[in-house]
Design a binder for these strands. Structure first.
Length: 396
RNA sequence: GCUGGAAUCGUGUAGCGGCAAUCACAGGAGACUGUAAAUCUCCCGCCAUUCGGCUUCGUAGGUUCGAGUCCUACUUCCAGCA
């Protein structure tokens, strides 16, 4: 119980490969499929850890790049690790900084959306991340200072932060890159995966601390050959699980996840990085994904959007000014039980911070409950039926 | 009462002879998927789907090819003096 392990409870066969299981970590269990809440800087924006717990969250995911810059990973280490520092007593994840290779590099100042124009890259002169074979030079988003990230440094940071599940340092590429570049980047990510794994195991062993799991990260854009190749290559290594990454074209998400999960070892957990739209999660779970993380529920909440079973609505719209009905009639979260749409609309229009808190509570609870209900439907064999009914109502 | 100053989109403003006219806020709509995000984009006199057309800068006149910009009177407001 003090070590990392993954057990599969129920697995559906062809054509659906959905499965349920439990990820055991030193800080507790995660029943899968599960949605992992993102708290980049060791905080889920606008929420206290107690509020996060009340949404039903089982685990949180923080970011190595951001915590390295502020307050510094050594501070987190001195505090006793991420759980102690952030007062989160459940399992924790950290991302490696690989996402920032894209978001501060070729995707800098671009909306990293799966439906956005994929034909453009940020001009090199404006970027804050520069990749080479050995690592990445980052220009700090806080003060502009330069920092050198290598797989080894990312592992040292994540080891210090002390999350239960960490990710190998990878290069996330833009879909606008050529096939040749995708190959080059993928090979680089493979080499970084080996370096990450070796260094991380060494650090964990030498420190004598509780076992920290390391997940390899699969790239390959939307090319089937590259996706299968990387799944085989990393799948053969002794990672504890796998993260599926990349700026994935929305319409190809299920297909891509399918290629990859066909090649990966069945007995290791698979995490789909940065995804939380309901249709995407259904598609991914159907292909054997076990966990997700995403900033969307909180980010979108801060901007006034909320999920309901009948689709997403934007509470800032004028039509909610005098709508005194419950936010989401089907939801039992704190926000829905206590506040009307008109009140939440007012908070948003008035720029009151409570809006971010209340809407984040609802959105996280909604997405977590959705994934939890997927687990239930897999267990009782109704997954496909449930998926169709749920999606047809949500997207009308 | 006298002397200055000011009147421009819902609000506060820019504008010093060639503008449907700046900026901000308010208002409206949209976006957001491993967080540079309490952010970003678009609209915001009237009409038109486009080209474009129409009417505007307190009111009424005037000067000028041309006036929000200059002149005169009036109205209202502000400041100082009585």
């Amino acid at each position: 119980m003090n070590k990392f392990s993954f057990t599969i409870d129920k697995s559906l066969g062809n054509p659906t490969f959905a499965r349920t299981g439990i990820i055991h970590t030193p800080h507790g269990d995660i029943k899968t499929p599960a949605f992992i809440v993102v708290g980049t800087k060791a905080t889920v924006k606008a929420l206290t850890p107690e509020q996060v717990k009340d949404t039903g969250a089982q685990a949180i995911l923080a970011n190595a790049y951001h915590l390295y810059l502020q307050p510094g990973h050594k501070i987190v280490e001195k505090a006793g690790g991420l759980s102690e520092f952030a007062n989160w007593d459940g399992p924790t994840f950290t991302d490696s900084g690989g996402f920032q290779v894209l978001s501060l590099g070729s995707g800098y100042k671009k909306v990293i959306s799966m439906d956005s124009d994929l034909s453009t890259n940020a001009p090199k002169s404006s970027r804050h991340a520069f990749v080479d074979d050995d690592g990445v030079n980052f220009k700090s988003v806080i003060d502009g200072s330069m920092h050198r990230f290598t797989p080894e440094l990312s592992m040292e940071i994540q080891h210090s932060i002390g999350a239960d599940i960490c990710f190998a340092f990878d290069e996330l590429t833009s879909l606008a890159e050529t096939y040749e570049y995708q190959v080059e980047a993928l090979n680089r990510t493979h080499r970084w995966a080996e370096r990450s794994l070796n260094h991380f195991r060494k650090l964990n062993k030498e420190s004598g601390r509780p076992y920290q799991a390391l997940f390899g990260v699969l790239q390959g854009a939307n090319h089937e050959d590259l996706r299968r190749q990387t799944a085989k290559f990393l799948g053969a290594m002794s990672f504890d699980g796998y993260g599926i990454g990349g700026a994935i074209e929305k319409s190809k998400l299920g297909e891509i996840v399918g290629w990859v999960t066909e090649e990966l070892p069945v007995d290791k957990p698979r995490h789909l990085l940065g995804i939380s739209e309901p249709d995407d999660m259904f598609n991914a779970v159907a292909k054997g994904i076990d966990t997700f993380d995403c900033v969307s529920p909180t980010r979108v909440a801060r901007n006034g959007a909320v999920y309901t079973l009948d689709g997403r609505i934007n509470l800032r719209k004028a039509c909610y000014k005098e709508d005194f009905s419950q936010l989401d009639p089907d939801c039992d979260c704190y926000t829905c039980q206590n506040y009307s749409r008109a009140y939440l609309h007012h908070l948003l229009k008035a720029g009151e911070r409570l809006a971010a808190t209340l809407l984040s509570i609802h959105n996280e609870a909604f997405i977590i409950r959705l994934v939890d209900s997927m687990r239930t439907s897999i267990e009782d064999g109704s997954f496909e039926d449930y998926r169709q009914k749920w999606l047809s109502r949500y997207y009308h």
